[in-house]
């Protein structure tokens, strides 16, 4: 993992990586984001936490707002955001793979 990528991953906290994951399959406004996150993870993001994370991710250049005539402004993933999410998920996959291997070896889980 390069230093630049490590910095990007370290900047992504719990709520933020849920947002990036949700935006990976298309742009969404805030309410749709929370509904989508609830559906795939079971985690409910409260409004205050959501908009604090959106503001931070926008400041880091990982997401960007889309101009809309609706009051509810949608957001989409940027290239930088996609790269950060990719590195993060790779690290999670590596961790999951190693954990599964050790679990099967020591605890006889299948």
């Amino acid at each position: 993992m390069t230093k630049k990528t490590a910095e990007g991953v370290s900047r992504v906290t719990g709520v933020a990586h849920l947002i990036l994951t949700s935006l990976a399959d298309g742009e969404k406004h805030g309410y749709a984001l929370t509904q989508d996150v609830m559906q795939f993870s079971g985690i409910r993001i409260a409004p205050g936490s959501l908009y604090e994370a959106l503001a931070r991710l926008e400041g880091q250049g990982l997401i960007e707002p889309i101009t809309s005539t609706d009051r509810r402004r949608p957001y989409r993933l940027t290239a930088a955001g996609a790269a950060v999410l990719d590195e993060f998920l790779s690290a999670q996959e590596q961790l999951a793979s190693e954990g599964r291997r050790r679990l099967c070896a020591s605890w006889r889980f299948s």
């Binding site: 406004h29 805030g30 309410y31 409260a46 409004p47 205050g48 908009y51 509810r72 402004r73």
Partner: peptide, 26 residues
Amino acid sequence: EFVAHLEAELLERPVSVLRTVDIVGH
């Protein structure tokens, strides 16, 4: 967008102490 979001949330869940604490804190 925050108001629009909250309107939808309040319709879905009119009362939530955790949500109130979250909004006030942030």
